[in-house]
Amino acid sequence: MDDQRTAATPDEDVVELLLHRHGEIRNLFDEVRTTEGDARREAFGRLVRLLAVHETAEEELVHPLARTTVPGGEGVVADRLAEERRAKEALAQLEELGPGEPRFLPLLDTLRRAVLEHARAEERYEFVKLAQETDPATRQSLAAAIRAAETVAPTRPHPGVESASAGSMAAVVDRVRDAVRRASAGSG
């Protein structure tokens, strides 16, 4: 996933991070529209992955908070979820069609307009309120949670475990944890 995401600063809050992602989505739609052949296919692949990961993260972490923070939050979130569902169906249809088909670009344009309108509605109804109604620590922890949800599997081994057998290490973790809990219970 790192291929289409530009670096986000560690102290970037959730609103800044999401606006950043919306900008990346807008740029990727333009890239798919303005390229051809393999370049378009590759850009469309990145768009598919970015949209899927971004919408899931919003649904998991941002909309639940908006439900309780934004006036009429339930209705606002229900509208966004319905838009996301329609966008996913359109995306699946586009992928099935393939970037080489003549109908691909008109359908892509319809999806682009729907996704950008969806993003503007989120920015207007959810992000502004989140920025006003939540404290900086909450916004930073949400950003960290979103970045965690975007994490890909490490390419380096866990330090020190290459020679350990899986079963024995898991057992050590459980034994140490139990010992710590007993100690904490005893002292508490």
Binding site: P159, M169, R177
Partner: peptide, 17 residues
Amino acid sequence: PADVALLMLLGPGGAAR
């Protein structure tokens, strides 16, 4: 946090089994 710290220290065990 203590659970997570231990996990990071000792490793999650891996996928061998």
